[in-house]
Nucleic acid binder design. Structure first.
Length: 487
RNA sequence: GUCCCCAUCGUCUAGAGGCCUAGGACGACACCCUUUCAAGGUGUAGACACGGAUUCGAAUUCCGUUGGGGGCACCA
């Protein structure tokens, strides 16, 4: 690497930060951190119509959540600012002006209506769509006429009529384009705002970007960008494209694929370390077996050359598994702290707030290894807080059991429990395990009935630990309730 | 339609001519552990899209076919 690494993420503030974009960020961020370079956040708000209020904040929030920190950006400043394109309009206008003067670009007065008609005809006669260069050869006089008619022109790039251009991509290798297939695209819109193509080139040069790492959807724009660089007399950066993230239908991942915003994953109880690990492993791998990597391992081992070239589907099942891995690895206190917001929100309203963290500390131990997301923690523990009496009676009567044998089992168990001096797992164990044999039941049958009676559920953490956490009184009450239910 | 890209188990991937009777992970299934659910353990099924060519030898190179994706806006 001869020049300092300076990379950027340049989103347009048109919505929520989604996982595809985050993956682009990760490649850029990792590149910067691996080489000790600079990671820049730049806002490309050149489309006034599509701009969404608050989008910049959401993007930043997503990046901060994943600890993908930037060294220069709108909120941070830096020596190459401002980092918001709408604040740099004069730069693009000057560049466009220069290109027109030097004959690399021209003003176009075609109306949107004319362009639409033109396109419709091209489609009808099965011609490749593209601007027909109507205004390309206008004389100064013709231009002046249009101007006096009050028409606001756009500036178009004067595409060479023939020749080819080759781009050497780090992930895709040599890609060659025939210039005859490219049209005179717009550099500057009639409202004075630049298009992506112009703004992107002007800023990447001005901000001394060394590597442009972006999605594959941009690869066919490379010749345009290269040509602008050439016309402007600038040296282009290294372009690196990565394959797209897809939905299960194999199409480019987008909003219609459901929860796709990184903030939604956060709200659905995924850990940031899971998302970092998981997204980092789509289209990039360390070796043939490592699945769980720390942030530092990603940084240490990152290399552009290991970016694959095939599109990848976002596999939610594997994500869920990985989140479980990270949840289990949390120390109990951390698990408590991270679960708390979900519990505050997800536990029934009748549960007293603020929540009793000491009690939580005790019961969370029982569910930590059972949770795949933090969002399911409230459901996992709710029976510790509310009496769940609505369960079906059949749940009390286990395999090979009858109503009578269940009533007996529960009745005798109740007796034994009442007489218990202490109420801990060992005591319960010694009191209840032998009881199964006495009653001629399998332990599973006895414990199953007790489980449903005390929790209202058929799947819970280990019975005795659960009962201890519930406390003797509540266990007895619930057994009584079950008995009443059976009567 | 046209240009560009891609092509290994259902999914994420390892593989850069012999190490491949193709490895790992998720998922699926079975069994073990076990009071249920998890977790854990063991195992099973499961892929080089197809056709040519190059080579002593091809998942790996080349060509074609097919399939998929992306671009072709006064959107990024």
């Amino acid at each position: 690497m001869t020049q300092p690494v300076r990379v950027r993420f340049a989103p347009s503030p048109t919505g929520m930060p989604h996982v595809g974009g985050i993956r682009t960020v990760m490649f850029n961020w990792l590149m910067a951190r691996h080489y000790g370079g600079v990671f820049i956040l730049r806002i490309e708000d050149t489309d006034v119509a599509r701009k969404v209020e608050g989008a910049v904040e959401y993007i930043m929030e997503g990046l901060r959540w994943l600890e993908l920190d930037w060294d220069e950006g709108p909120d941070k400043g830096g020596n190459y600012g401002p980092y918001v394109q709408s604040q740099r309009l004069h730069l693009y206008q000057e560049a466009a002006e220069r290109l027109v003067e030097q004959g690399y670009a021209y003003r176009c007065y075609c109306s949107p209506e004319r362009l639409e008609v033109m396109r419709a005809e091209q489609v009808k006669s099965k011609l490749p769509p593209g601007y027909d260069r109507h205004c390309r050869a206008f004389s100064a006089k013709e231009c002046a006429e249009q101007e006096t008619a009050g028409i606001k022109p756009v500036v178009r790039f004067k595409m060479p009529l023939e020749g080819e251009i080759t781009h050497n991509d780090i992930t895709y290798g040599k890609v060659t384009f025939d210039l005859r297939t490219l049209d005179d695209f717009i550099l500057l819109k009639s409202d004075g705002f630049p298009t992506y193509h112009l703004a992107n080139v002007v800023d990447d040069h001005a901000m001394a970007i060394s590597h442009v790492i972006r999605g594959e959807e941009w690869i066919s724009s490379v010749p345009r960008h290269l040509l602008i660089y050439k016309a402007l007399g600038y040296e282009p950066p290294e372009y690196v494209h990565h394959p797209l993230l897809r939905g299960t239908d194999h199409a480019k991942l987008s909003k219609r694929h459901g929860d796709v915003s990184i903030l939604e994953f956060r709200d659905n109880g995924y850990l940031p370390e899971t998302m970092f690990n998981f997204i980092g492993l789509i289209g990039w791998s360390l070796d043939d077996k490592t699945e769980i990597l720390t942030r530092q391992q990603f940084i240490d081992n990152f290399s552009l050359e290991r970016i694959g070239k095939t599109g990848a589907i976002f596999d939610r099942k594997k994500l869920e598994w990985m989140n479980g891995v990270y949840i289990r690895a949390l120390n109990p206190e951390d698990f408590l702290q991270r679960s708390l917001p979900f519990l505050e929100k997800g536990l029934p309203h009748q549960v007293k707030r603020p929540l009793d963290t000491d009690y939580l500390r005790q019961i969370l131990l029982l569910v930590q290894e059972r949770a795949k997301t933090l969002a399911e923690v409230p459901e996992l523990v709710s029976f510790f807080f509310v009496e769940e009496t609505a369960y079906p009676v059949e749940d009390l009567i286990g395999k090979g059991m009858t109503k009578e044998s269940t009533v007996e089992a529960l009745g005798v168990s109740r007796q034994r429990i009442v007489n218990l001096e202490k109420f801990d797992t060992e005591t319960l164990e010694t009191a209840l395990r032998p009881l199964a044999e006495e009653l001629g039941l399998k332990t599973g049958q006895l414990f199953g009935a007790l489980r449903t009676a005390t929790t209202g559920r058929t799947a819970t953490p280990p019975l005795f630990q659960t009962m201890v956490a519930l406390g003797k009184e509540r266990c007895l009450e619930r057994i009584d309730h079950a008995l009443a239910k059976l009567a």
